[in-house]
Amino acid sequence: METQKQAAEDLVFKALGDPTRRVLLDLLCENNGQTLGQLCENLNMKRQSATQHLELLEAANLVTTVRRGREKLHFINPVPLHDIYARWVRKFETQRLNLLHDLKAELEGGEK
């Protein structure tokens, strides 16, 4: 299970490690549920390269798609970002709060 989790995280960081893919996510944040055609127009990009970027975002579960008739709509899926937040950001916030607590205790001359 740990290796599975790691592989999933690798895909997220790889997907985010590219400016075009970050712009694609920004575009979906602004207007969720866009078609490939709409995204290409906003990016000024050919369908083929946009498709490749979207595939990597989908593999990382950062984008999910829903079919509506002949169209495929793309939705941003921020859930994996929250998983990363929980691991890489939240615990440092806790640590910072503990440091503040210790500092306060020291300045006030109380027990730690």
């Binding site: 299970m1 599975q4 969720n32 549920g33 579960n61 999910t64 899926n77």
Partner: peptide, 12 residues
């Protein structure tokens, strides 16, 4: 109207 679609994979 607007909609959101969220997906998560869970080992369960």
């Amino acid at each position: 109207t607007t909609r959101f679609v969220y997906v998560t994979y869970i080992a369960s």
